[in-house]
Design a protein around this nucleic acid. Sequence first.
DNA 1: CGGGGAATATTGCCGAGGCTATAGTTGCTG
DNA 2: CAGCAACTATAGCCTCGGCAATATTCCCCG
Lengths: 170, 170
Amino acid sequence: MNPNVFDDPRITAVGLLFEVHAGLSARFATQLEEHGLSPVEFEVLTRLSRSPGNQLRMTDLAAQTSLSTSGVTRVVDRMERDGLVARRACPSDRRSSYAVVTAAGLRRLDESLPGHLQLIQDWFTGQLDPAALSALLDGLRRVRDAVHPCATAGSGGSAPAEGAAASARC
Amino acid sequence: MNPNVFDDPRITAVGLLFEVHAGLSARFATQLEEHGLSPVEFEVLTRLSRSPGNQLRMTDLAAQTSLSTSGVTRVVDRMERDGLVARRACPSDRRSSYAVVTAAGLRRLDESLPGHLQLIQDWFTGQLDPAALSALLDGLRRVRDAVHPCATAGSGGSAPAEGAAASARC
DNA sequence: CGGGGAATATTGCCGAGGCTATAGTTGCTG
DNA sequence: CAGCAACTATAGCCTCGGCAATATTCCCCG
């Protein structure tokens, strides 16, 4: 084997991207932990609270997160136990049920969001001058549109809050 | 709560980065799976095979991956069972043991690397013209140097192959 | 040189989450 | 309208991997 494969610029490019992701994830997790939230729970709160009626069917919630439907069942179990969300029967389809953010869930999200935004500012967007940041985001957007089979066609529009998997609403 | 927090450009920036990461991770995992490797196993093979003697002490391997030491113990257990690595006693320190890549491990890595590089080319680096790619990488490098407490001071040098955690050799 | 603190690998125990099977609904179609 | 395929949520079982405890070894300092 060629011992220099690992100096291939493609490898270093991916390494860079993954290191940034790992670093940011770790900091986010630490900050969210202070508010008693895991990254997944934060993502669920985010997705629900930006949806009409602060609710989403379990399936749709799964489609917008990095979780399978059974994973959503379980995280909603935990969050319901903790009072952050509640289940509501869907009137039009008795197979479905809604997950709704509770007042406590909204409060929790409000508490953690400022720190979260500050963290992004401090460690990501604030590290670059506007031109460099814009170039970075343009590049990411292009790659995202390619790699993400179902990216919002508008291409610049609403990006998910965090950790969204390859399966966001298509 | 301000309903427009989620349109904050900081949120969309992080969302973009995380979506790209998720998309690439998923494609990498699929391709590696065809060669019977998980992302973690691929990372272990990569780290070992780029190390002198194709070996690394368990602790050092843990420091260079996204795993804790017990996680390394376990993944090496599995890979030893599958014949991809072997354990060797460390002559100078009887507490330590080396993980060594076997010939089968090297072969497995050789088989999967071309497809991996092709994937990076197809979905990441090849999506941008050289100037845009360079701008993207410059931005990532700056953010990496900030968020990664122990980035290689050279700042442009050797990046890890994949999924490296915040704990790479410092 | 002897004893205590640090380092190393491993193991037990646990939570997270994926896959698959399952039960309950829905809606289409013959 | 009966039956059947598709959809929805959930539960069982499994793997992965982290934390804390443990045994072993090393090293430094009195």
